[in-house]
Each structure stands twice: as C-alpha cells, then as structure tokens.
C-alpha cells in the first residue's frame, strides 16, 4: 500500500468527490455540451411540428410495447449496401420528434426506416398476423392479438399530451373502432415518408417495355425462376400463381378485357420496379437474368 499516510487513498470522501469529477468530464463534453449545439437539434423543412396522426402515435406505442426494436433497426447507414437494400440514407432531422429514438441495434429482421408505402395496408396486416404465410421460413412471431385489441381513445389522448402533441377532439373520437393492428400499420406506413429516395434502383421503362424474354422455354432458367418464386413470390401470389387476397392471380395475365395482354417487358418491369403501395420492386436484390427467369416461370403458369 501507499507509503504516504495522507494520500487520497486514505480519505474516503475526497476520493469519492474526485472520482465523481473525473466521471463528469467525459459526460459533459460528449453529452451535455453537444446538447447546446444546433447540430444536435436538426429539423426537416417538410416535416410539421406534429408529425403523427393520433392513429400513428398509438401505433408507435404498440411498436414499443411489442419490442419490435429488438429485431428491427430504423437507420439506413451511409453505406452502398444499406442504401441499395433499404433506400435513402437516414437524415438527422427525421428523428427530431422521436421520444425515444427508435434506431435499434439489431437486424434480425430488415431495417424499417423506409418501409412506409412499400407494401399495402392489407399486406402489412396479414403479414403481422401470420408472417410465415408470406415467408414460410421467417422467424418473426405472429401477432394475432393486435387485431383483437381495440384502442382506448382516452389513453391515446393522454399519451399524446405527454408527447407534446395536441389533437382535435374529433380526431381522437375517430379512433373508437380502431385496433392496435390498424395503429401499428398506420405507424409503419409513415416511416421514411419525409425523405425522397434518390438512389432507388429502377429499370428503365422505355428500355424494357418491348423487350423479349431471353429465358423463355429454357428449362434451366425456368427452374431457377421457380426456385426464386417459391422463396419470394409465393407468399402473396400463392402456389402456382393462383393468387389470393394479397396478390394477383398470375395464371391469367390478360386481366380486364379492356387492357392489353401483359407483354414480357411489362412482366419484367412489374417484378423489377414493383407497384407503388402494393408490391415492392425486386431489381435491387435480383439480377436482370433472374428476373427474366421468374418471368419465364410465371409464363408457364398461364392457364
């Protein structure tokens, strides 16, 4: 032990105070000083002071309650792969009204920062109730109870006030028949809507509209297409493309009589670019050749 009888190691109180001061230095510099700077309070010009509707705020509460944050992040990093997969890089101002921030730290499931509008409401609800219906090998739990639980408008109003948001009484009473599932989906559908995606990978319509499918009648490519179909498409369009509530019947691509038949190029563009609010685009995660293979497989499903 120390030779000096008057050292700090024999003075308990002074030691404790010095330790506290040492701990506070880093705390002040990295936490409290930045709080005073404007860089830590960014705003987006197109975002209102009241970014959530009552239903969306209630959905945010559900998102917290079910622990979605344990498997889903909400930050697109400035990395090429992140931007390709999810969309535009997360902007500081997007989180301005987030109490707490919900960026997360784990991606057992995909990032959700840009999920708003990618799928239809119906798809989101059906997926929440039974994710394995769409992705049979998914490990996401089923959330059937959300569809059975009604929101309590009085509670939503109380939470909104604490959050610093004020709503008109009629907006609150409008919640009366909404379920937690409606709320959660409303919350998900607004994620990322304030930032435009400038990096989206889209197939050029003019270039593909009249293209012919190079993989037609190629058994190897059709088998590849079937493999991909059974992984990514089957959830919505069902087995053998027979279709169901969440996805069109693919065995009959003539559609309404007034419309022309789907050409190869149109099938390609639909798979590649998706349909806004109804079907996600796949070009970001598939080569053009694979898309042609899926298109070739889909053609074989026609009645």
């Amino acid at each position: 032990m120390s030779e000096n009888n008057n050292s700090i190691y024999s003075k308990g109180l002074i030691f404790t105070v010095v330790a506290l001061v040492v701990i506070l230095i880093g705390t002040i510099v990295t936490v409290f000083v930045p709080m005073m700077t404007s860089a830590m309070h960014p705003k987006l010009s197109n975002m209102q002071e009241n970014p959530y509707t009552p239903l969306q705020l209630a959905g945010r509460d559900v998102y917290q309650k079910e622990g979605c944050i344990n498997c889903h992040s909400q930050t697109v990093r400035p990395l090429k792969a992140d931007v390709l997969r999810y969309g535009e890089i997360s902007q500081p101002g997007e989180s301005a009204f987030e109490r707490p921030f919900l960026w997360g730290s784990k991606r057992t499931g995909p990032d959700l920062a840009r999920v708003g509008g990618v799928y239809s409401d119906e798809w989101q609800k059906a997926h929440m109730i039974n994710p394995q219906h769409f992705f049979p090998s998914s490990n996401m739990p089923k959330y059937p109870w959300l569809a059975e639980k009604k929101l309590d408008p009085a509670t939503v109003e109380k939470h909104a006030k604490a959050y610093g948001l004020n709503y008109k009484p009629e907006d609150i009473t409008a919640l009366e028949n909404a379920t937690e599932l409606d709320a959660l989906v409303a919350y998900l559908q607004q994620l990322g809507i304030y930032v435009e995606n400038t990096h989206a990978i889209k197939a050029d319509e003019a270039a593909f509209e009249n293209a012919t499918n190079p993989n037609l009648n190629n058994p190897e490519k059709i088998a590849r297409g079937e493999e991909i179909y059974n992984l990514l498409c089957i959830g919505c369009h069902a087995e053998n493309g027979k279709g169901q509530a969440e996805g069109y019947d693919l065995t009959n691509l003539t559609f309404a009589e007034a419309l022309p038949d789907y050409t190869d190029g149109m099938i390609f563009l639909t798979i590649a670019n998706g349909l806004e609010g109804a079907m996600p685009g796949h070009l970001k995660i598939m080569t053009k050749d694979d898309i042609w293979s899926v298109a070739a497989y889909v053609k074989t499903l026609a009645k």
């Binding site: 830590m40 309070h41 960014p42 987030e98 707490p100 921030f101 604490a162």
Partner: peptide, 13 residues
C-alpha cells in the same frame, strides 16, 4: 407509459 425527456439525436446520444 413514459417518453424520453430527450428527443432525436440527443435521445440516442
């Protein structure tokens, strides 16, 4: 239910 006193970047930091 309660909400973080700090918002956005400060909440994260």
């Amino acid at each position: 239910k309660s909400y973080h006193l700090f918002a956005g970047l400060n909440s994260a930091n």
